[in-house]
Design a protein around this nucleic acid. Structure first.
Lengths: 257, 257
DNA sequence: CCTGGCATCCCAAGAAGGGGGGATGTCCGG
DNA sequence: CCGGACATCCCCCCTTCTTGGGATGCCAGG
């Protein structure tokens, strides 16, 4: 029985995976996603994929079949900068239900209002599959329901798999191998960035590392030049995003001092 | 029929997911993974989870039931630094088969030699599920076969899901705590923090939000007081860590404006 | 009514950014 | 052997930005 059920399941997954994998153009992929969405008993989909690079505009990738008013509202009010789902994408290693967003990120009244505006525009609950490739790209594949529909929970594992394949296809369509030359910082530079992220001033860091303050400033300046950013804030964020330093490095230190 | 097969599948996935999710210690998780491995018709597992950053050693997380000689060889020759599977983890948004590594990363003769040494030590083909959380961690969950065994392909989707849950559990055990009670920022304050993270100065933000520069400074000051930090850097990091703002919010604006 | 969000203004001190100028080493390839 | 690249270290200049204090007022909601 176990074997049989797996065979049937494989048939379903294989069909949908094949569908999204074989898409040779954005239009193809949109059609495939629409088909998948219906098969999974959802109402809408949204597929978003971005390269991490300088030329972000041309490689940004967004497919969806949301109701036009909602899409328009979303863009007009720059809701993307205030989207709890985007934030949740960076805190989960797997797909998540919108109705369980609270478990992932703090929800402000504005966030809830945004979701309720979505409901008013025909978007109720949803399931979003996030994926990240540090240094290369991030993306998410969302399946959404109309407000009156019930979440097809048995389908979520399938959505997870198919969503991942859809993102892989989007990645292929968005352009092959965007060669990102990730800046390399010297050990000393990294140290300075880390202590900087921990809230130390250049003078503090100089004391900690037993070097001159000007040297610290020089290290941080060189590091900024490597990342082509003009503020220490941005430098810290770059290092954090690249995995050069981590929240763990910073917070553990905060706790003990 | 479709409904029935999904129900059965859900039963299988639910059982395994519950098993790995409920693990309350590394030993528990190792037991759960051993059980899952047998259920999925694999022979070995390896669960690896690392915080990003410099001081990673103490929080590194590695569970496996590989044959001792292979594990020892791997460590002794520092094969991790030259492991094609590790490199593939950085390139794939979903689980991948070792026999298809060529499609993901260039394979050197040394890489192939490493895999063949693995086979000599009882590790044949395998399936590795990678996951990344920028700024937080990376991890992978691997299911491997003895050289004489056949890949249980129908099980791969289940491996993908269960692997993700195993990594989430590893993350929890490694000390990534869920959200605690956190300071609440007003919408205006949050906006100021977000634009600040995007690299804007107080004067810039004042222009963007069409308010006075002093007001922006006041908002940021209040926000700092809420988080009890004394620098804008720390404020941004707190907001990021709390999920109040996201890398996507920030990066989207770099290079775009 | 009173708290909290929002907005505005002032000032002084210090930190960061941007631009110079140097000085040591090492390591690698010509 | 030598030159160039680069990490590491140090010092000067000046401007801009941030931080920490103050203070004031308007307005909506409990």
């Amino acid at each position: 029985m176990c074997r049989r059920s797996n065979d049937v399941m494989r048939t379903l997954i294989d069909e949908l995976v094949l569908k999204v994998s074989n898409a040779g153009s954005e239009t193809n992929l949109a059609d495939a996603m629409a088909y998948v969405t219906r098969q999974l008993d959802f109402d809408h989909f949204a597929l978003s994929y971005q390269h991490h690079g300088l030329s972000s505009t041309e490689t940004d990738f967004l497919l969806h079949d949301y109701p036009a008013p909602w899409a328009q509202t979303y863009v007009e009010f720059d809701l993307a900068g205030n989207d709890p789902i985007r934030r949740a994408c960076e805190r989960s290693m797997m797909g998540f239900l919108w109705c369980e967003l609270d478990d992932l990120v703090p929800m402000s009244p504005g966030d809830r209002r945004m979701l309720s505006v979505g409901r008013a525009n025909g978007i109720g609950d949803g399931y979003t599959v996030p994926r990240h490739l540090p240094g290369y790209a991030s993306g998410s594949c969302t399946f959404a329901l109309r407000p009156d529909r019930v979440m097809p929970r048995p389908m979520l594992p399938v959505a997870e798999i198919v969503g991942a394949f859809a993102l892989t296809t989007a990645r292929r369509l968005a352009g092959e191998s965007p060669i990102i030359a990730r800046p390399v910082l010297s050990p000393r530079q990294r140290e300075c960035v880390l202590w900087s992220a921990r809230g130390k001033t250049a003078a503090d860091i100089a004391t900690i590392l037993s070097i001159g303050e000007d040297t610290v400033i020089q290290h941080l300046r060189t590091a900024r030049e490597r990342y082509d950013v003009h503020s220490r804030n941005a430098l810290i964020l770059c290092a954090l995003f690249d995995g050069l330093i981590s929240f763990a490095d910073i917070r553990r230190w905060w706790y003990f001092h």
